[in-house]
Amino acid sequence: MTMLPKSLDSKLKSLQSDNSSGEFILADAKDADMAFGLSSCGERRPQQSDEPAYRSLQEYEAIIRQIVDQGLVDIMLMSARTADRLARREGLFANSAMTPAVRMNDSTDIWLAGKDYSYANEPSLPFSTASIAHAKTGVVDSADNSHASVDLGLYSITLNHDVARDRASLLAYREFRHEAERAGFRHFLEVFPPNAPSDLKPADYAPFIADSIVRLLAGVAEAESPQFLKIPYLGPRLTAALCEFDQTIVVGIMGGASGTTHDAFHLLAEARKSGVRAALFGRKINGAEDQLAFIQHLRQVADGEIAAREAVRSYHAVLASNGIEPKVALEDDLQLTAASQGLGESGVSKDTASYSSATAVASSTAR
């Protein structure tokens, strides 16, 4: 399948040669069905008493089509099932500059079925439901990779300062990298905060993540390297240090917990100041009153075209003009909460960029 040139490819090339080029990679995460159950696709709004509370997968896919048509994000991250339907069978991305991507592993800390998320209380164990072969071509054995519809995946690891479990996670990542290199399959690396650390204090999470990333990547050859990183915002000092350590590595942030609209835009603006050049927002986009308008303003903040507070005011103005009732009043939505801070350098905010609501790191599920 012949595809249009992708904005991701041109931006990566530009950033890897000059991190100050001004390019910014923006991604939407529509892979929540890899973690949650029936609530994966988000709540219907406005809610009608005679219908299910949550969107169906088909409604979820309809929103993905709208976002692809809008063309403002560079990557659409999906589950293998959704990507198989939209990217392979439907060919949704063939005439789009957007790059489809698949979540390639679902380690145990994102197993969030049920009410108490009991799996997420246990230290992360590596596991992958999806396979590279199926992500690329839809079948386990394909003699013709020229028909691949997806060539990019997200791989995530969660390190807990537990030598045996962390070794198992790193070994699984090594196996994935080697398989991906053989298959001509690219990936970006997500590093979650510890979900059940054995002996780390909250104030140690951010430096532990930064040091672990540097140590991990030191053993990775260029041919198997991640295209970019997706990590919690570590605060201005540590984030800047990580971005400056090797400027050929594009550092991206995850969107964080559900909070105010100002939380989302402020987090993005602050990360950009620290040298971050990519961001993946999932829950914040999917929970927005108007996803297209929210993405429009994310793009403007990411590109430095508008300040965070002004973006909030502009977003509410769009809601009003579209006849959409906001979840909270403008003045309340202009507030900043802990959700805007990511992993602080003197401690950990209550709402951080972790899937789990049952860990020492987070009290609400987030991306």
Rank of each mutant, 00 (worst) to 15 (best):
F192K: 09
L38F: 12
N121S: 14
D116G: 07
E289D: 09
T137Q: 02
A62E: 12
A362S: 15
G22N: 03
G347E: 03
S107D: 09
L217H: 08
E345L: 04
T359K: 03
Y54G: 00
A143P: 01
E190L: 11
D199C: 13
Y233M: 06
A329M: 15
V301R: 01
A358Q: 08
A148N: 00
L280E: 08
V191P: 00
V220N: 08
T260M: 08
Q341D: 12
S49I: 14
K30Q: 07
T337P: 11
G304E: 06
L77A: 04
V102F: 09
L8T: 07
Q341A: 14
P202V: 04
S149N: 04
Q227D: 14
A366T: 03
P197L: 07
F185V: 03
M104S: 05
D33N: 13
A271G: 05
S169H: 06
M78L: 13
A269N: 05
D116Q: 14
Y315Q: 01
P100L: 01
Q58I: 12
R309P: 00
A240L: 09
I213S: 02
H161Q: 10
Y119K: 09
P126Q: 08
I157N: 05
L242D: 02
A358C: 10
N95V: 09
I295N: 00
L77C: 02
T108S: 15
G42R: 01
Q16T: 14
I253F: 01
S354E: 06
A130T: 09
V318L: 10
G153A: 11
I157E: 02
P202Y: 05
L189S: 05
V328S: 13
S56P: 04
T359C: 14
I157L: 10
A164L: 15
V214E: 05
F245A: 13
N322S: 13
R313F: 08
S128Q: 13
R313M: 15
I306Y: 03
P226S: 06
S107R: 05
F24Y: 12
V348N: 06
A307H: 12
G344K: 14
Q66L: 08
V348P: 00
F36A: 09
T99E: 11
S131D: 00
G37W: 08
S349N: 15
D74I: 02
L216A: 12
G114N: 03
D204G: 15
V150T: 01
R313L: 14
S363L: 13
I295A: 02
A83S: 11
A206E: 10
A210G: 03
T248A: 14
L125I: 09
D106R: 10
H134K: 15
D84H: 12
E270R: 13
S131T: 15
A27I: 02
D303Q: 12
H266K: 06
A278G: 06
G255Q: 04
L229F: 05
Q70F: 11
L154C: 06
V214L: 14
G282L: 00
R167N: 11
A278H: 01
A353D: 01
F281M: 10
T129K: 12
I209H: 02
A257C: 14
